[in-house]
């Protein structure tokens, strides 16, 4: 299974507005960055060159891992997608 191909196996109804928003200043000051390896959907990536954390919410499985592993509460918003949007499991 290649995580980059997540949209091939899991369905999403993507909202135009992100349900998670990061405070970049806090991410910049963090040297743990547990979100980048713990997120089961690989939504977080740190760019060393740009000194920037990128969060792509499209493939978010809404599991809450980032909410728990972030030690600095870098979220200016962390909520579930509004009703009807986000991941849509069919079987599982």
């Amino acid at each position: 299974m290649n995580i980059v191909e997540i949209f091939d196996f899991t369905s999403f109804n993507i909202d135009r507005e992100p349900h998670i928003i990061l405070n970049q200043d806090i991410c910049k000051g963090c040297d743990v960055r547990g979100c980048t390896n713990c997120c089961p959907a690989n939504c977080y990536s740190w760019s060393e060159a740009e000194q920037k954390m990128t969060f792509v919410y499209d493939g978010c499985l809404e599991c809450g891992t980032c909410y728990v592993v972030c030690q600095r509460n870098a979220f200016t918003r962390w909520r579930y997608p509004r009703g009807g949007f986000g991941v849509a499991y069919r079987m599982t």
Partner: peptide, 20 residues
């Protein structure tokens, strides 16, 4: 366990692929 996963630096999907 999230505490242990965070320290390991490993990712859930890589570990799942190795398991399989």
């Amino acid at each position: 366990h999230l505490g242990s996963l965070r320290t390991s630096g490993k990712t859930p999907y890589d570990l799942l692929n190795e398991f399989l």
